[in-house]
Design a protein around this nucleic acid. Structure first.
Length: 411
RNA sequence: GCGGGUGUCGUCAAGUGGUUAAGACCUCGGAUUGUGGUUCCGAUAUACAUGGGUUCGAAUCCCAUCAUCCGCCCCA
């Protein structure tokens, strides 16, 4: 028996309703803010991710699905920002009126150990905005994430933001962190020692108790809470916060929020939930002002985010009534077929009993699958009427064959 | 890559060494040739993850493998 591969899943009909809801809502919310959909390929040149995502990241180092074909190294996309940037450059979008505002959805691939909220093939929906370095652009993009989540009916979430500053201020901050932690290195856990070399900023959100305790020391706290970002970056960050406040978006500043991808600068943010297990971030993003240039384009400021749709899906409560509108109950198959088609042409979902079983079986099936039963048996056929039965209330009415379509909507 | 839990019909789930492996749901049929979801009866299924081992005898004990779930790392 061949099974779906580890870390992959079938989205079955019952669940696909929720996926359609997520996708429809995305399209609606983003279109209102004049973001346009872009669809880029599932695989790209490996080099795009190596350069774009950053070769110090785990994603590039150990999680990519890479394969060779005709002497080219190709990789299944582990995220979509690099691909969208590639398309922006390739199609000369810098000559379009700026900013260029794009959104996407689709599968991503990372070779990781699956666990709650993490799969090897997973789906992201995201937005990217190119060509504006204004703080209002940051706020717009964050606002869009919050709007989308609200539209999905998710309120039990919190927004965290931080500013990493520009490369210069970040380096300063990094160096001071390294300096103050140096004496404690032998007391910190193995992972922290590894991070010390690779990504010192990440040390601070270590979950090991003994490490946390060390971070509470005064000299370390002073560095953590200290202000290392330059005046320009600081002003930018202050304005972003002002806009968010005036939009009534609740957020908290988390100085330990760092994000793992190499390309971020200035504003970074995450939206988290307490109902997700240990993978609690549902949305992550930030500003990446140097990425377009890194990938060979003109210097172009940009900001964006991505959400994990599997994580969203696990938060969305059961929403809609997925039942069929009408089940046509009749022992005359061709009449049932005809009526079902009439209903469909008016926008009602409709079905009839293919095996043409007896009345009771058909009504039974109707009750299990539909909101209304439309009964057309011998009596109805003789009198040129139909009987509409509301399967929730058991009420039914007999109406003329000619105008049942008007009746069924408001019965 | 590292650590822990779990694998019995499509789903849930009894069974902890003894010969036909319960039950429920789902599906289908009948009781009931026009009123269901909440009656009664019945039918269907290559279900003990796989491969070894221990034993007179293994779903049950041991080992390995695989799958899955949860956590670490990292990320959405």
């Amino acid at each position: 028996m061949i099974q779906a591969q580890k870390g992959t899943k079938d989205i079955l009909p019952d669940e696909s309703i929720r996926w359609q809801f997520m996708e429809d809502t995305a399209k609606k919310v983003f279109t209102l803010a004049n973001f346009k959909e872009i669809r880029t390929p599932i695989f790209e040149a490996t080099e795009l991710f190596a350069r774009g995502v950053g070769d110090s990241t785990d994603i590039v180092n150990k999680e990519m699905y890479t394969f060779e074909k005709s002497e080219r190294s190709l990789t299944l996309r582990p995220e979509n920002t690099a691909g969208v940037v590639r398309a922006y450059i390739e199609h000369g979008f810098s000559r379009l009126p700026q900013p260029v505002k794009l959104w996407y959805k689709g599968p991503m691939f990372r070779y990781e150990r699956p666990q709650a909220g993490r799969q090897r093939q997973f789906h992201q929906v995201g937005v990217e905005m190119f060509g504006s370095s204004e703080p209002s652009a940051d706020a717009e993009v964050i606002n869009l994430a919050v709007k989308y989540l609200n539209e999905l009916g998710l309120n039990d979430l919190y927004v965290e933001i931080n500013s990493l500053g520009c490369p210069e201020c970040r380096k300063k901050y990094r160096d001071s962190i390294k300096e103050v932690l140096k004496p404690y290195l032998s007391e910190l856990c193995e992972d922290c020692n590894f991070r010390y070399e690779k990504n010192p900023l990440r040390i601070l959100d270590c979950k090991v108790d003994s490490c946390k305790k060390i971070f509470e020391k005064d000299d370390i706290q002073k560095v953590i809470l200290g202000d290392f970002i330059c005046p320009d970056c600081k002003e930018h960050f202050e304005k972003v916060k002002e806009y968010l406040n005036s939009l009534n978006i609740k957020f908290s500043v988390n100085k330990l929020l760092v994000r793992g991808l190499d390309y971020y600068n200035r504003t970074v943010f995450e939206i988290k939930s307490n109902n997700l297990g240990s993978q609690n971030a549902v949305c992550g993003g930030g500003r990446y002002d140097s990425l377009v240039e890194t990938l060979g384009g003109q210097p172009t400021p940009a900001i964006g985010w991505a959400m994990g749709m599997e994580r969203l899906n696990s938060l969305i409560s059961d929403i809609q009534d997925s039942r069929l509108d009408v089940f046509v109950v009749s022992e005359n198959t061709s009449e049932a077929f005809k009526v079902a088609e009439e209903l469909r042409s008016k926008g009602f979902s409709a079905e009839f009993d293919y095996p043409n079983r007896k009345f009771k079986k058909q009504l039974d099936k109707a009750a299990k699958s539909a909101k209304y039963a439309l009964i057309i048996m011998d009596d109805e056929l003789k009198s040129n009427t139909v009987t509409i039965k509301n399967l929730d209330t058991s009420e039914q009415v007999n109406v003329s064959r000619d105008d049942y379509l008007c009746k069924i909507g408001n019965f």
